[in-house]
Amino acid sequence: MMAIISRGFSGRRSAAVVKLPPGQYLTTDFPVLSAGPTPNVPLDNWQLTIDDGTKVLRKWDWESFRGLPNETFTVDLHCVTRWSKLGATWEGVSLDTLLAEVNTDASYAFVHSYGDYTTNLPLKDLLNQKAWIAFRFDGGELALEHGGPARLLVPHLYLWKSAKWIRRITLTHEDKPGFWEGLGYHNYGDPWREQRYWGE
């Protein structure tokens, strides 16, 4: 009994207290994962578009995007490569704000990055204060290697869904797998249900 108590109060307290999704370990740094060259888009050329696959529904340049109401939020990140980073503070525009004037009956979102990265998710996972387009991290500008100038953040799903260097969101009626979803990674990717790969 004594041994159990003393073990619980010494050593790896943070690991003992913090609840992580299954199969994840805690990290305090912020590993960089990139499937390709880091795009460096000058802010003068940067655009964010929401379309329906044929026509543009909303479009912002950097100035108009930064003029939107933004929020500071603190979230936990879970990467499918098994690290979790807790309590990261970001600044960004909620997808609720970006989609507020979009009239659609689409069910899915297909996200394109600068470069060739894509990812897919149900549109409802972008709504109700669950997703942001972030442009500041930890009090500073969002570094290029972490997806700057702006990246998607959908912290309740594995981090590969949070597309870095976001460029376009296409709203569709039919789901289409993105870069990793098409090659073995789970279509939805809920870390708490450990949906890493196909069939999980």
Binding site: L33, W160, G184, Y185
Partner: peptide, 28 residues
């Protein structure tokens, strides 16, 4: 070759287009 990703991605040295991707999951 990009290794720090959920898979391995090999790109063309001339144009950076994806040549090959490998994902090694549990038993597949």
């Amino acid at each position: 070759v990009y290794m720090q990703t959920p898979g391995v991605v090999a790109r063309c040295a001339a144009c950076e287009h994806v040549l090959l991707r490998v994902v090694n999951v549990r038993h597949r």
